[in-house]
Design a protein around this nucleic acid. Structure first.
Lengths: 172, 172
DNA sequence: CAAGATTGACGAATCAATCTTT
DNA sequence: AAAGATTGATTCGTCAATCTTG
């Protein structure tokens, strides 16, 4: 019995053919969809997907301002990655940075007029691409089941509840 | 009327609140799932997700051999990316390379014993993670709808039919 | 000349170390 | 000392140019 348990630990249940098909499709989606969305964005606006996301989140703030840490949390990115991104965006004059007046440790990212213009320019094409790729091909029940399924996986990943974010990708 | 059409072109239908929720959940899944799978792999084997995929595909070939181009097609990656990856894997002695005897233009990637051992070592944990994150939380009907939905989106992306790939992630 | 793959240069992501403010 | 963020070094991915074989 002990030997059997050891064997089971080392070699868990493999995927059934059905599960394998599902997983391969899902994996393929992960590999291809970001590229498809990214290429649209870059052709319309020379923004990457993450750059668009960050600027869109900022554009929804009343004063176009947010702490870098909050931005990192909303984008599920490491502070370091965001910091490098902020520097590049600042070099392109799409945002500017300053220390938070209330707490000098925190850095504020502030959307510039140019940054707002850029995200507004990019938004329609982006939304249209998302709609055409996803919502145009799924009917309402499918969409509901899909959302439920994704939410369950997210819960398993421990990122449940954090889905409540900005009204991305409106950007307006 | 002309003005209205112009307006509609510039500003397509935004997402409904329901669609927005679905999209945010899906986007969050894209951002978090690869990292979750990758961290498991690296802790078990010091392979990245793509490295694991490549070695797994090779391990399913009868002679452990495949052309780099075929490998790139199966991984939906650019030849350049695969080439750099092959060089790194070769430096780690997980594969070796040689020109295809039948056509000297094509490069062959050949799985070494060490490479095969590495992917076999990584496979159980990987499958278990995929199962625990996805298939343990979805019942059979949900899984079927999810697969249908993903396939429809893939068809829209133009990668339909290519889902038929290796029996990844069995690795054995 | 076309196909297949590689290379080198550059841009972006990650990790550890650092700096500043509280 | 801890929190928040930045920096520098390394690694990875992308793009254009190149090399070789058919």
């Amino acid at each position: 019995v002990a030997a059997q348990e050891t064997l089971q630990d080392a070699s868990p249940r493999w995927l059934t053919p059905d599960e394998l098909e599902t997983w391969k499709a899902l994996h393929l989606l992960f590999v291809t969809l970001p590229g498809a969305l990214g290429s649209q964005l870059e052709s319309d606006s020379s923004l990457s997907l993450l750059e668009y996301y960050v600027l869109a989140v900022l554009s929804e703030q009343p004063d176009g301002t947010l702490r870098v840490g909050q931005l990192a949390a909303l984008a599920y990115s490491e502070p370091s990655r965001l910091s490098h991104l902020m520097r590049r965006l600042e070099e392109r004059s799409l945002i500017r940075r300053r220390p938070d007046p209330d707490d000098g440790r925190c850095g504020q990212a502030i959307l510039t007029d140019a940054g707002r213009a850029e995200v507004i320019k990019a938004a329609p094409g982006h939304v249209q691409r998302v709609r055409s790729l996803i919502f145009d091909v799924l009917d309402e029940p499918e969409q509901r089941v899909l959302r439920e399924a994704v939410m369950k996986v997210l819960a398993r990943l421990g990122v449940d509840g954090l889905v409540t974010g900005p009204s991305w990708p409106l950007g307006k």
